[in-house]
Design a protein around this nucleic acid. Structure first.
Length: 428
RNA sequence: GUGGGCGUAGUGUAGUGGAUAGCACAGAAACCUGUGGAGUUUCUAGGGGGAGUUCGAAUCUCCUCGCCCACCCCA
């Protein structure tokens, strides 16, 4: 709620609070482990890019560029944009750093924030995180399959069960224009029965009509020519092979002839992955991607084929939260240091440091004086052992270790305590 | 951009025109510098903002702001 004199995060912006970090990091770790396995290297690119790479790369007529980009002019007059997606940045980097002279293909992965100015909604933010994989410099259909497989793997790694993979081919610069004409002719003949949005799309991006959910458009599209029937020879055989690879890898997929993607640079294979649950369907695609054989050239590089996929971190997180699996709490402290008196308080810092070196997390509230209060805190933290270090112990260089579950206590010499606690933790 | 729902302490909520706006959790303090989960007591903190109707508004009306959801599109 909006309060007087109180700041608030901007619409569509959100904090990922400590409690959610478990999920946030789980996504990152899953992505990283899959990427490492397939020998992808991480890349990081600036949030801010020359806006032109999106106008040219992502495409002027796309929803993203047309209405959703955060753009502004710098003091020096440069027209820049907060990245709405990663791929053009990565391709820019590939070209800029001469990665075409590396062994091909170059395999990269990423994880970081993106910005799109649109109406926030379930699983949709203005600042959100995407991760993804890109393979640049390889045209073979096996790569398309590998990208799909990795995407599938990442989600499976996070224990997603009911996944739907939808696949289609949207042809290339050879066959798509021809198909477009064909489709236009068909659609023009039905123009008056299309929904108003689609009548508008007819001019701008007729392929998207195939994606429309309006009932009357659905009926029209049922009779529309399908792109897979109009693929040129090379696209056709490419797609056929991709499907064969998918079959061979036993990756479950649905052919969806109406799947078109919102970005201009896609060619041939496109795919999206959803979770097959009510919430999953509402939220939209968890991951999506495809081949983009023209993008490198469009952005000024050599003619280089490429293929990639991207995933939405927040979307995945929100579904992850509904899963039964409890977040991993193994990193929480299992030991608490309670001190009493000035001398012990002073010596406590050194003790803590010794535990840190032994890589044992020890919680404390040095700010508190009363033992009772410290125990209360220890208890709330759900700690197993409390180290009691009072005046008496400080003088004798001893320390008491209390087992909170059993209620038993043992006294140790100060220089032995780290080893003893380590032993105890190991036996848990 | 269009449509729907909702705004009460930090969080979750009660209260349908009338009393000091109630409860739970969280937080702080005391009992209590030598041993936790409990208790008691005390404290902190609230109707998004504005206008109107009314003797009287958290409650009704309007505006505005914000949040959520849907369309659109997508990760």
């Amino acid at each position: 709620m909006q309060k007087k004199n109180k700041f608030q995060s901007l619409p569509g912006m959100h904090d990922i609070l400590p409690d959610d970090q478990v999920y946030f990091q789980k996504v990152c770790k899953s992505v990283e482990s899959i990427a490492n396995f397939y020998t992808f290297k991480r890349i990081e690119t600036p949030l801010l890019e020359d806006a032109d790479i999106y106008y040219k790369g992502t495409g002027e007529d796309t929803e993203i560029v047309e209405k959703q980009m955060y753009t502004f002019r710098t003091k020096g007059g440069d027209h820049v944009a907060l990245r709405p997606e990663w791929t053009p940045s990565i391709v820019r980097s590939y070209i800029e750093h001469g990665m075409q002279s590396l062994p091909q293909p170059v395999k990269l992965w990423y994880y970081g924030p993106c910005f799109r100015y649109e109406r926030p909604q379930a699983g949709r933010y203005r600042q959100f995180h995407q991760f993804g994989f890109e393979v640049i410099g390889e045209a073979k259909p096996a790569i398309d399959c590998q990208i799909i497989q990795m995407s599938h793997d990442v989600l499976k790694e996070m224990r997603f069960k009911n996944l739907i993979i939808e696949v289609n081919s949207i042809g290339d610069s050879e066959c798509r224009p021809y198909f477009k004409k064909n489709l236009m002719n068909y659609l023009r003949s039905k123009r008056s029965s299309l929904c108003p949005d689609c009548q508008r799309r007819l001019k701008q991006n007729p392929l998207r009509i195939l994606d429309c959910k309006e009932e009357k458009c659905q009926r029209i599209k049922a009779g529309a020519p399908q792109i897979i029937d109009h693929l040129c020879e090379s696209c056709h055989s490419h797609f056929k092979q991709v499907l064969e690879f998918l079959d061979e890898s036993e990756i479950p997929y649905n052919l969806n002839p109406y799947l078109v993607r919102g970005l201009d640079y896609y060619t041939k294979t496109v795919f999206e992955i959803f979770e097959n649950t009510p919430q999953g369907k509402e939220q939209g695609a968890l991951m999506g991607g495809g081949r983009y054989d023209n993008l490198v050239k469009i952005l000024g590089g050599r003619n280089t084929p490429a293929c990639g996929a991207a995933g939405g971190v927040e979307r995945i997180m929100s579904l992850l939260k509904n899963k039964e699996t409890k977040p991993d709490t193994s990193k929480d402290a299992k030991v608490f240091l309670a001190q009493l008196g000035n001398l012990s308080k002073k010596k406590s810092l050194k003790i803590l440091e010794e535990f840190r070196r032994a890589k044992i997390t020890v919680a404390e509230t040095l700010s508190k004086d009363s033992l009772k209060a410290q125990f209360r805190t220890a208890n709330k933290l759900g700690v197993r052992y409390v180290l009691i270090f009072g005046q008496r112990e400080a003088l004798n260089d001893e320390i008491i270790v209390r087992d909170m579950d059993k209620g038993s206590q043992e006294v140790f010499k100060l220089d032995a305590v780290v080893a003893e606690v380590k032993k105890k933790l190991k036996n848990l």
